[in-house]
Design a protein around this nucleic acid. Sequence first.
DNA 1: TCTGGGGTCCTAGGACCC
DNA 2: TCTGGGGTCCTAGGACCC
Length: 425
Amino acid sequence: MKRAIALVDCNNFFVSCERLFRPDLEGKPVVVLSNNDGCVVSRSQEVKDLGMKMAVPWYQMKDMARRHGIVAFSSNYELYADLSNRVMSLLAQFSPEQEVYSIDESFLDLTGIPADHTQYAQRIRETLRRCIGIPVCVGVAPSKTLAKLANHVAKKNPHLGGVCDFNALTEKELDDLFAAINVREVWGVGRRSTDRLNEMGIRSVLDLKRTPAKRLRDEFSVVQERIVEELNGVACLELDDVVPDKQQIICSRSFGTLTSLLSDLEQAVVAYATRAAEKLRQQHSLTGGIQVYIRTNPHKERDAQYQQAVLMPLPEPTDDTRLLCHAALHGLRRIYRAGYAYQKAGVMLTGIIPASARPQTLFDDVEAQQKSHALMRTLDRINRSMGSGTVRLLGEGCDTSWAMRRDHRTKRYTTEWAELAVCPA
DNA sequence: TCTGGGGTCCTAGGACCC
DNA sequence: TCTGGGGTCCTAGGACCC
């Protein structure tokens, strides 16, 4: 039986989430901005049609935005995460095997589902539209890479009604289609590889599909070799239906305003290490080290530039916020240099292991470990029920003048009691 | 004035061991 | 005077993704 993998991808996900609570913006040009209102990260179709590119700095677009009446929102991650969870659990009902690939995308295995897959995919679309209000497109094909491509075709060709099933096409029809698609559109082929492929005379998806896999392995790596196999309908990538623990946890942010003060950086680093430790405990893991990172604004070419990172190994794996903050501050003071205008700081946890795999030694202070565990659990419980940051380390500070800007954020309609959407009586 | 944040995988090269 | 070769582990950096 031919494999059938579906990729369901939400259309302009963040914009669609905002429109859910602002139906008046249907058909109007809308964007959602990254942290600090820095870049454009989600665009409605109307904005794409105006030619605005993904990830462009928002301040450069202000003129264009005014001319066309583009409505801009700061990103509201609580809202998007909540709606994403609803979409994913509804999708789970359509297949025994699901891989949640990103906040707005999910693979579903439709192999063996006794239905016309094009109609089945239509049903998925209608259900999501009706029950949640989020528009999606669906691509179906014998491999994940082809399913991504089929989804791309569905998105670019409105006359298909949001669904494209490669399994329903002949080899000839597929090749004609592939000849007209740029190789850059293939999942896993980025800007660098596109340049190199073009130099080799490979421009279309069809060109790539017909290149011997061995040749790509020699010129690139196994990654590109697998891509070609997948384009030829040989599934190399399985569906990962269990979410693996993170191997690294990053928390970093740009500041709302530049700062030269060590005290500002200290507060930021404590705040980030605190968030990272929370994520670590959420997946019941311990970390072996914490890396601290600071940098100036690389776009301000005339300013003096500095960036430095340092990895602080921990004497033993831990998930204790206090130990992580202590190590992070130590590292920060080691790399901090006065006289620079810093734009960003971050921490990264590495060497992550499951808490159950904590190495026991003869000299372990078991009592201290138990106390730490109890304290962290209490901290997490309070912050979960009373709101993030209710209890925190003093080092995080209260005067967060460096914190990011979110000037256009909408309400957290679905996750905060005080901000629930209410229908007028 | 103003340019995001959080991940994964792969490879090359160095350290170390026998 | 003369100084191998192969394996493993770790890390940094590149490329890519959303």
